[in-house]
Amino acid sequence: MILPDINLLEGFALLLLGCALMLGLFRLILGPAAPDRLVAADTLGVIATAGLILLAWLLGSALYLDVALVYGVLAFVGVVALARAIEGERT
């Protein structure tokens, strides 16, 4: 793993994203019901995409951009599928 010269601001940005992921995880674990967890998962997907894009720069590899794109697609499809499942459950 080759790290380019990371300055303080970039490291701090990565730290903030890590904190964001952790706060989102709290909501995912605390619930209290399925919809709350689903919303948390949706937002976490977007934040994780942002994290992957930042990592692409920090690790100096464009491959992470493809990973971010595919992760975003899968998160979106998963959320829509689960939303459809909730919708069909009680109507």
Partner: peptide
């Protein structure tokens, strides 16, 4: 951008 993501997470919390 990172700050906004943190705000988003704080919002859902």
């Amino acid at each position: 951008g990172a700050l906004l993501c943190l705000l988003a997470a704080l919002g859902i919390l």
